[in-house]
Structures are given as C-alpha cells and as structure tokens.
C-alpha cells in the first residue's frame, strides 16, 4: 500500500493543460500542408507521381491536396524542388464537410463547426462514443484509446468511449471498411439511437487510405453512413482527434 502511494507521488499530475494552455508538438510532426501554387513549375507532376494515394488533385495554379486521402508521408514535399508544398506543424485538421478537407493555395481552412440545434444542446456536455474498427490497422485505434489515458483525459469534456452502441451518441469509425465488416458496422450504426453523429477517424475511414481501390474494401465509412466529422491523418495525432471532437461538441475555447 505504501508503495502504491509512493509511486502515485512519483508519477505526479500528468493531464495536459490543453486546450486552455499550450502543448508542444513534435517539430517533425507533419500537419496541415501549406501550398504555394505560384511556385509550381509548368509541366512538372513529380508530386503526383510520388503520391501513394492520388491525393494531389490539381497542378500549377490549381494545386490542391485532398487531406482525406493524404497519408501525411511528405513524399510530395520531398519531390517538389521549388517548394510549392510544405507540411507545417499545424495539428488542427478536422472538418465537418468532406470537401473542406481539400487544401489549396492561399489562407483559409474551414475547421469543423459545433453541432447546432437539439444535437448541439444534447452532446455539448456529454457525448458517448462507440468506436468500430473496420479494417483499421490499430494505429488510429491506439490514438483514440490514448485519449482516455490521464494525459489527454477526454472524460473532462464529457467524452467517453462506451461498450455498447445503445449507450452511444456517436460512432467513430476507423479503417477502410472491408466487405467483411460492412454489415457489422451497419448494424452497429443502426443500433445507436438517433440523434447520432458519425465520425470518420483517419485516412482509411475517410477515403480508404493506403487500401483505397482494393476490391476487398469499401474506401471508408461513407459506404454505411456519411460522416459528420472527418479527422484526417495516418493516423491522426491524438490531439488532432480530440481537437475535432471538441469542435464538434462546441467545447473548444474561443479563439483556439
């Protein structure tokens, strides 16, 4: 018993001050890319050649990256000699609409808006999440799991992963949804009482990730239900996930 108390004292208080306070992210973290289409060279498509998932949508003046497909591997940045693509450390990435995941030149990126109306009022103080891994590789799953640990402690925002869809307000899907899991996912969604929200976590759940186009998968959660929140990344950093969840339930402090 004394040992338990001693170790409790040694371990200290570890819950992060974020979102009120700041948090230091790894300097090499590949977050939201910034594009300079004006730097694009005519006729060059190196970025598109090296992109593993076809996330480069346009070239030259229309240079655009679809963060829904992007694995944040940085191959395009390495391949781009004039430096038209640069990945920044910016971890805030989650959007409400799928099309808002497309990054173009110039400022502006439309992050997820809080839920409004009845669901907004219902979920602002308590949002219970049923997580379904449908072909997930256990990285997105791990970074959702970690939100329950004392470092992130999402319970302080009324967010909690629950065991039964009957207890859930939200279904968080990871993975490209293999055919083998489509029915189980559909049943889980159907078993979640309405109003409910669907959250696609990671490149696989948004657009199939590295498995996009495989005959064995359905390229993400949309085959069962459209997502109300899309959190890009492969996997997204836990803070990117939590940031998205807080925006959705309207718990992100103003100005953050």
């Amino acid at each position: 018993m004394l040992q338990v108390l001693l170790s409790r004292w040694q371990q200290g208080y570890r819950t992060m001050a974020w979102p009120e306070g700041d948090v230091v992210l790894p300097d090499r973290l590949r977050g939201r890319p910034v594009l300079r289409p004006e730097a694009c060279r005519d006729g060059c498509d190196r970025c598109r050649q090296v992109c593993p998932t076809g996330a480069i949508l346009g070239l030259g003046p229309t240079l655009a990256i679809d963060l829904g497909r992007c694995l944040f591997c940085g191959e395009c940045e390495r391949a781009c000699a004039p430096g038209a693509i640069r990945f920044t450390n910016e971890h805030r990435l989650a959007t409400g609409r799928r099309e808002d995941l497309i990054v173009r030149g110039g400022p502006g990126y439309k992050l997820a808006e809080p839920l409004t109306g009845e669901v907004g009022a219902l979920f602002a103080r308590s949002c219970k999440i049923r997580q379904v891994s449908a072909g997930g590789c256990n990285a997105c799953e791990a970074d959702i799991n970690v939100l329950g640990t004392l470092a992130f402690d999402m319970g302080r925002f009324g967010l909690q992963v629950v065991a039964s869809p009957r207890h859930a307000d939200a279904v968080a899907v990871t993975g490209p949804v293999p055919h083998q899991m489509k029915l189980a996912l559909a049943k889980t969604v159907a078993a979640t009482p309405t109003p409910r929200v669907i959250i696609a976590v990671g490149a696989c759940a948004i657009a199939g990730g590295p498995f996009a186009g495989h005959a064995e998968v359905n390229d993400g959660a949309a085959c069962v239900a459209p997502a109300d929140l899309s959190i890009p990344g492969c996997p997204p950093h836990p803070l990117t996930i939590l940031d998205g969840l807080l925006r959705l339930i309207g718990r992100m402090p103003a100005g953050r």
Binding site: Q49, V50, C51, P52, T53, E75, S133, A134, G135, G136, G175, P176, P178, Q180, M181, A184, P210, F211, H214, A215, E216, V217
Partner: peptide
C-alpha cells in the same frame, strides 16, 4: 477475417509508391 484488406494481392506487381 473481418480485417481482410487484400494486402498481399496489392503487393504483387510492386514495388510501387504505395
């Protein structure tokens, strides 16, 4: 089998950017 994503079949023919 629920997690079957067809990885081995996709690897055949590589290596490629994916």
């Amino acid at each position: 089998g629920y997690q079957h994503r067809g990885v081995e079949r996709a690897l055949a023919g590589g290596p490629d950017p994916r």
